[in-house]
Computed example of a mutant assay.
Amino acid sequence: MECALNIDHFTDNSTYVSRHLMVYGAVHNYIVFALGVVLNGVALWCIRKCTKTNAAMKLLMMSVFAALFVICLFTRLVMAEALIGQIYCDPMRPKPTVLLGFSLLYALFAQFELAAIAVVAVFRTAAVWASNAYVLRMRVAVAAVITIFIYSFLTAVFLLGAMFVGYIKAPVLDIVNGVYFFLNTLLPIFTTMTCYVAMIIAMRRNKRRMAQVQSSHSRVVNNATRGMMAVFASNLIFGVPHSIYHLMPRPSQSFGIIFHVLFSTHFIVDPLVFIYFNHSYRRRVCERLWAGWAWVAGKCGGPAPTTPRPLGSSTTTSLDVKMGAREKHQHAGQVV
């Protein structure tokens, strides 16, 4: 039996929530679960297989998609169940303690992802502005990841968790809520935007120096930077409305479903645009997909499909030229 769905965050502001909207929200969570696990897993695989990005930067970039992978794998099904429980008047589906735990897990890794993107942007900007070739050290990257995780854990559990269970009450609640979401959503976005603007300015002002530093590995730098800028654009489009929603003093549950559906869409858009705008990653994925298709065709008894030229060859036409360029610019590939 279905509820009347006359449910809202505030008892004095009853708002009818459309059943179709709640069903759509639940289905969307299932879609994000399935596609998010696959796409973020592929993004992690691409970064791990890359031999031209230094290990420290790979750690930072992998932390971004590892956070999204955890969100999609462990939290989307629980959020879908919560919406279904509201539709069918079952407050124990899932249990409140389980829902609270997974909500905090979601908040922890969502703000971790935004902070990690901002840190990647800061280090890339530092590399562009440095007078000499800048090499990110592994200990610096590890310290950054650990610091972000500890900060995200403490604020999610002890600040957001306190708001969830009612330890912080109005009027202080509205102030704490605004500060929390500004620091953990809008501030990382503003930081990332500032860094990429500074990076573009530096590259234009120092074309000769950048040509000397990056001429041998411009494709590596451009690919990696292009991919992360695409991820940032995705966060900008899907994340800013979500942040504004949380800064609203009394948002209805209908708004909550709409804005969280919009925000959670970037869990699958981020890895997709990251792979697409990184030419080497896109080529590697296409080659694997084509190899898988050829294997399936062979197992089914059909003729093996001929590999098309764009998937079987890169912009360099000779393997010897590739190997020579790799040996010549081996050191340059580390300066990313």
Rank of each mutant, 00 (worst) to 15 (best):
S234N: 05
Y276K: 05
T225G: 04
A110L: 07
I237D: 03
V285P: 01
L187G: 04
L186W: 08
T125R: 14
V42M: 11
H260Q: 13
T306Y: 08
Q330I: 11
Y30A: 14
P303V: 12
L289G: 04
D270H: 03
K322E: 14
S14H: 11
L44N: 00
P308D: 01
M248G: 01
R226L: 13
V64T: 10
L44P: 03
V240F: 13
F277L: 09
W129K: 12
K328N: 08
H279T: 11
N184A: 01
F274K: 06
N177L: 10
V321K: 12
R139H: 15
R139V: 12
V145H: 00
V273G: 00
S234I: 01
L183W: 05
L187I: 03
A297P: 02
A332D: 14
L59Q: 04
G302A: 15
E2C: 04
A230V: 03
I275S: 01
S131V: 14
F74I: 01
V240H: 02
L262E: 09
A233R: 04
L289D: 02
P308N: 02
S63H: 06
T191A: 11
H331C: 09
A116Q: 15
W45Q: 06
S18C: 05
F274C: 07
L247A: 11
P271Y: 06
N6K: 10
F232Q: 08
L59T: 01
R219T: 11
R282Q: 05
R205D: 06
C286Q: 15
K299N: 13
Y276E: 00
V231H: 00
L44S: 08
E2K: 14
A126P: 00
T53A: 11
W295M: 12
R205L: 14
W45H: 07
V64F: 09
A291L: 10
Y196L: 10
V98H: 06
F112E: 02
R124G: 07
